[in-house]
Amino acid sequence: MAGEVESSKALSGLLNGLAQNAFHGHSGITEELLRSQLYPEVPAEEFRPFLAKMRGILKSVASADMDFNQLEAFLTAQTKKQGGITGEQAAVISKFWKSHKIKIRESLVSQSRWDNGFRGLSWRVDAKSQSRHSAQIHTPVAIIELEFGKSGQESEFLCLEFDEVKVNQILKKLSEVEDSISTLMQAA
């Protein structure tokens, strides 16, 4: 078992499989599949505790969204505790986390959202081409398009049109907010 578990390539594959299952929703990656593909010589009763240990470490690292200093401290502690991991395993876990941290974090954030999220904003200044009153034709307007949606679904768009008066009102409100924030920051 020790020689098989020490294999960096197999451990990297195991971490990938665990991440696919736990964070990316690939339920077809089972314990038996991982064992048969990566550790075929290891009996199931020996593989199961090793798998549980690696799953626990990966979940701890991901749930804390560890930066690289925290990761190194955590892995060092894991190598020093009885029944922990080896230095080679710690190096493989560290390398894995460095290359997969962003994707795992994005997946966890996406899974934790119940409602639509803000995806983007575009804006432009245009001239009004139609109006009930001829005096308003060719006046400048700000057109703002907001994009909302859930991961894996089509976006919904909200289009807003502001004339010069509304734009000035918004700018005034934003200025008031900025002044309030500055006042609060100076008081702190």
Rank of each mutant, 00 (worst) to 15 (best):
residue 105 R to K: 12
residue 158 L to I: 09
residue 107 S to T: 03
residue 78 Q to M: 12
residue 90 A to Y: 03
residue 85 I to L: 02
residue 77 A to H: 08
residue 91 A to C: 07
residue 83 G to Y: 00
residue 121 L to P: 01
residue 117 G to E: 06
residue 137 I to S: 07
residue 89 Q to E: 09
residue 108 L to H: 09
residue 117 G to Q: 00
residue 108 L to K: 15
residue 80 K to A: 11
residue 119 R to D: 15
residue 121 L to T: 11
residue 153 Q to W: 12
residue 97 W to E: 05
residue 113 R to S: 08
residue 157 F to T: 09
residue 154 E to Y: 13
residue 90 A to L: 01
residue 126 D to G: 00
residue 129 S to T: 15
residue 136 Q to N: 15
residue 145 E to L: 01
residue 103 K to A: 14
residue 74 F to W: 05
residue 100 H to P: 03
residue 109 V to S: 13
residue 105 R to S: 12
residue 153 Q to V: 14
residue 99 S to Q: 13
residue 134 S to G: 03
residue 127 A to H: 09
residue 74 F to I: 02
residue 96 F to T: 01
residue 159 C to S: 12
residue 148 F to H: 11
residue 84 G to R: 05
residue 156 E to H: 09
residue 144 I to P: 10
residue 99 S to W: 07
residue 141 V to Y: 09
residue 106 E to N: 13
residue 110 S to D: 11
residue 89 Q to C: 00
residue 151 S to M: 06
residue 122 S to V: 08
residue 75 L to G: 07
residue 118 F to P: 09
residue 128 K to T: 04
residue 82 Q to C: 04
residue 134 S to K: 09
residue 119 R to S: 14
residue 89 Q to M: 02
residue 87 G to H: 08
residue 97 W to S: 10
residue 152 G to T: 04
residue 102 I to M: 14
residue 98 K to H: 13
residue 70 Q to A: 12
residue 117 G to I: 01
residue 114 W to Y: 15
residue 138 H to W: 10
residue 127 A to S: 08
residue 79 T to D: 07
residue 128 K to F: 01
residue 71 L to M: 04
residue 114 W to F: 10
residue 116 N to D: 15
residue 126 D to F: 07
residue 138 H to G: 07
residue 77 A to W: 00
residue 125 V to L: 12
residue 114 W to K: 15
residue 127 A to W: 02
residue 154 E to F: 13
residue 134 S to C: 00
residue 70 Q to D: 09
residue 79 T to I: 05
residue 94 S to K: 14
